[in-house]
Computed example of a mutant assay.
Amino acid sequence: MRSSTKTGIALTAALLALPVYAQNPLNTHNHGSATVQLVQRNQELVIYVRGTGVDMLGVGHLPINMEEQTKLGQLERDMRNPPFWIGLPAAAGCSMTRYYPSQHPVVAGRGALQEMSPGKVYESNGEHMDLNFTYHFQCTSPNQLSSAEIRLFKHFPSLQTVNVKIAGFNQKVVAVGPDNPVVQIP
């Protein structure tokens, strides 16, 4: 099996494990906090971002009208541009190859439900909404990927904490805030 195929399989397995990993108390539906997970293997970097609708969209429920749908569309366009929300070292030469946005309603006591379909307006029955964004990057010099600046605080002022989970050869979890948004990558 080719090395790139093995890498793809390993990263796919890591991403498939993210929903289970997301059940970790660090990744619960808490207003004022978000989660960023970085998974690096050779030249591929996968980043998963999760935040609440209240913090990232300004509404805590599923979009129920066109105004809220428009806000969600703008958020997805903004998040499609990684420098909007994260700063990676230019020397690492990381280029985004894929991007996947999604929304999940969270019902108290039952956790996240199935992924919502983009562009469809849903009836809100007291659900809360989590927003998820998954990014795939190819990095020409992954050994230069030594830090990341979390810029979510600049755009979402209600965020107080972002829990950054880093997986690769070394693993760690770091909480960053508006006054200390840079995390060192082992």
Rank of each mutant, 00 (worst) to 15 (best):
Q114Y: 11
I150V: 13
H128Y: 05
G126W: 01
R151W: 01
G119W: 11
N125Y: 02
E115A: 11
M116G: 00
V106M: 02
Y48V: 04
R80W: 07
G58R: 15
H104I: 01
G60P: 04
H136Y: 06
Q69V: 03
L72S: 12
M129R: 09
F137P: 10
I64G: 03
H104K: 05
P89C: 07
V54G: 02
S147R: 14
H61S: 09
F133P: 00
G87A: 05
P118E: 09
H61L: 04
S146A: 08
L62F: 01
N125C: 03
V46M: 07
Q69G: 06
D55F: 00
P101C: 07
S158E: 08
T134M: 12
V49A: 11
C94T: 01
Y135F: 11
R77C: 02
M66F: 08
K120N: 04
P63M: 06
G73N: 14
L62W: 01
G93A: 06
T140M: 08
R80M: 08
H128D: 10
N132S: 07
G93F: 03
K120V: 15
Q43D: 13
V59N: 05
K71V: 14
G119Y: 11
T97N: 08
P82N: 05
L62R: 04
V107N: 01
P118H: 14
E76F: 10
C139V: 04
N42Y: 12
H104F: 11
H128S: 10
R41G: 02
T161K: 12
L88N: 00
L131G: 06
L152W: 09
T52S: 15
Q144I: 03
A108R: 01
G58P: 15
D130S: 09
E44D: 10
I86T: 05
V46T: 10
P157L: 12
